[in-house]
Write a protein that binds this DNA or RNA. Sequence first.
DNA 1: CATAGCATGTAAACAGTTACATGATTAT
DNA 2: ATAATCATGTAACTGTTTACATGCTATG
Lengths: 181, 181
Amino acid sequence: MNKGNKTQYAILGVLSIQPMCGYEIRKAMDTSIKYFWQESNGQLYPTLANLAKNKLVTVEKQAIGKKNRKVYSITTLGKNKLKDWLVQSTEYYPARNELVLKLFFGQNVPAKVSIKHLKKHSERCEAALKIYREIEAQLVAEIKQKIRPVYFLLAVKAGVKAVEAELDWCRESITLINKYT
Amino acid sequence: MNKGNKTQYAILGVLSIQPMCGYEIRKAMDTSIKYFWQESNGQLYPTLANLAKNKLVTVEKQAIGKKNRKVYSITTLGKNKLKDWLVQSTEYYPARNELVLKLFFGQNVPAKVSIKHLKKHSERCEAALKIYREIEAQLVAEIKQKIRPVYFLLAVKAGVKAVEAELDWCRESITLINKYT
DNA sequence: CATAGCATGTAAACAGTTACATGATTAT
DNA sequence: ATAATCATGTAACTGTTTACATGCTATG
């Protein structure tokens, strides 16, 4: 009961920003949040229905022509549930990392294989960093003008720092492999 | 077919170091590998049985008194399967991060809540860093004496770099919250 | 003699993705 | 016309954890 079903909190959190329909929640998650949280449709819609059943959100059906949207709004009950989760401290599980796992077993393949993985990962990190930096600059400007709360920036900065560290690690690792194989 | 069932590769990888029984694989995973890869018993034993069925490992039953161990060894077929996976490039999925998700929704709770989370996370990172640094020092010494291949060090360094970056992020984030709330 | 560690495993529940199904609307 | 986007959802599958079940052996 303490864990699991974090999907509901991710949804409640998104709805705490503004009321949205399922599709919009999906989009919101596929843009900003996707760098640190992902949900699939197969999770989203059933969870949304469940939240409504438990009165944590309300549903308002909007019919534009024959197009049917369901706009979800967070209720007071939902906000309290979200807050309860927000104040709870998180547990720290180091995440699975397939690249590190592969490198760990690197003695089974030629050194160039591991170096290739590291170079490819560097490229991915550079690309991600570029995107993060753009979002970061945008957010900094908006925070200074008091349009945005600072919290979105923290999330982006987490990405920036993580990717910078990975780039650093890739460079060092290539040097180490070249030195010790 | 391209993805999934990475458990088998983690096991094959561990067995590429030396033959072990299930319990020892478990222990090996619960020590070194756990920082970037975790497996539970519910995954380990059925996968091990499956690897044996597919001739990727062999089983040798050792009876010490009434205590029964099954010692698993990787076969040539298993080594090839492992190598095939090792040379394949990994996909880059940013991992889920509950702490960042919580901070992202920080405007729903007082600033001190988010700061508390960040301080607690700093402490966890400091503790992890201490452990990583000890392992790192040990490995560096062993690599210089050519006892160990360099690849274990890379994995530890990934942890060191990641945790250092998180510490940095925690410090900056606290400053930002204090400044902009 | 009790507890921790060695040793193997299973069943049920839960988490999560993928692929599919359906249909309207807008832009090219 | 047709492709992209809006919009909602389900079913089947896979992955993963948790909790349990069993029993031996060494140590304090």
